[in-house]
Structures are given as structure tokens and as C-alpha cells.
Design a binder for these strands. Structure first.
Lengths: 98, 98
DNA sequence: CACCTTGTTGCGCAACTGCGCAAGTGTTGA
DNA sequence: TCAACACTTGCGCAGTTGCGCAACAAGGTG
């Protein structure tokens, strides 16, 4: 269970993309917001405290790393966590980040 | 257990520092190497395939994020993972990184 | 002491990031 | 068809990052 299998360079690039997605306080704030459930872009930008275009860009980073997915309903787009393990990983990081 | 408590801006900056440390393929490679045990800077730079100064800078990023610690023995400095949860988090990320 | 080995630090540069702002896309309703 | 709303995309700029290279620091050895 503690076995660590080496990754290929290509795999590590995908993992690093997840790291980059987690590398910004505002994006982490988005994850915390989405932990409470689905949210629209406007809602998220208000809670995080940034402009809508900026939030859209942050969401694009999270989406391309596969951490969130979106769903359209009329003109509104709702984002949610793509996988519960995303939150698990974030919470695990919180336990040892000094 | 699925409760998500909001973090302060300052806390999120520390968590984001961990994210940044995980945001580079070479640094992830270092973590994989260190999963097999303590390693010197020279050993790591050889395995990762970069120059020693470059490795030293990557290790500084990992160290300032609290992911690794070092120990000096003569002129050689050995690095190791600071906490087993670091590896746990990395492995967890690997499970959902698409 | 001089000299070697092992790491770290400083510097300059190309590449990337986060941001604000303006413009564009797409969906709804009058 | 036109206007309004919700979001995305393009662009430019300041700040950051990763890298190679040279210089420096620290320990060990003769």
C-alpha cells in the first residue's frame, strides 16, 4: 500500500497541472465554495471577491485540470467538483501544510 | 467527516504554496525519488536529469513549502520527505488526475 | 594553508501567470 | 429582431518562475 510506482514524464505533467490548479488562493477558495454545492460563475466571483472574467479564467484552469465540471441551465452555468477525491486531497494538504 | 471548514486568506496562501510545490514535473519526480528513501542533492539531480544548481532551487521550493527536510553529513546534504502524508496526497492526486 | 567536493546563491533571460478591461458568444424573453 | 443577461475570450501589462551559468560558502583532506 506504500508502494510508489514511478510515473512517466507525460503523467507527471498531468499531475503537475493539478498542482498548478491548487497553486492559487482564489482557486482554493473556489474549491471550498463548491464543497458546499454547485454554484454559478457570478455567485463564485462574489464570494471569492473578484471580477467575473477573472473568475471565468480561474474556472478554466480548474476545469482543464479536471477538478471541476460545469452544467448549463439557460444563460447560467453551474460549476461543481468533478470528484470527491479533489476535496479529499485538498483537506489532506491542509493537515500537513505548516 | 465531509465537513469543509472555510480557511482564512492567510491559510489559503500556505496551502497554495504546497500547490505550487506540486506544480512542476521535476519536483514531483523528486518526491517519487524520495519515496524510495533519503537522497543527496547530487543523486537527485542525476535521477531527475537536471543540473545541481537547478535541483537546489527546486529543493528550496519543496523545503519552503514544508514538503521535505534536509540533514547534513559532511559535505553531503540528504533530503527526505517531511511527512508521509505528502506522498499520500500525491498518490491521491494521481488517482483522479485525468 | 591550498585544494577538492558538495550545495547554495546571484544574475539575466525567455516563458508563463494573474489581472483589468474591452469585445465577443450564446441563451432568453419582449 | 432587438435588448438584456451570464459568461467567455482576447489583449496588454506587471510580476513571477524555471533555467543555465558563474560566483560563492561550507566541510573534508593532505
Amino acid at each position: 500500500m506504500d508502494q510508489v510506482q514511478p510515473s512517466s514524464e507525460l503523467e507527471r505533467q498531468r499531475f503537475a497541472a493539478v498542482g498548478r490548479a491548487l497553486a492559487d488562493p482564489k482557486r482554493l477558495c473556489v474549491l471550498e465554495c463548491l464543497a458546499r454545492g454547485e454554484q454559478s460563475v457570478g455567485d463564485l466571483s462574489a464570494q471569492v471577491g473578484c471580477q467575473v472574467p477573472n473568475m471565468s479564467q480561474h474556472l478554466a484552469v480548474l476545469r482543464s485540470a479536471g477538478l471541476v465540471t460545469s452544467r448549463r441551465e439557460g444563460t447560467t452555468i453551474y460549476y461543481r467538483l468533478a470528484d470527491p477525491r479533489v476535496l479529499e486531497a485538498y483537506q489532506l494538504i491542509q493537515t500537513f501544510a505548516r
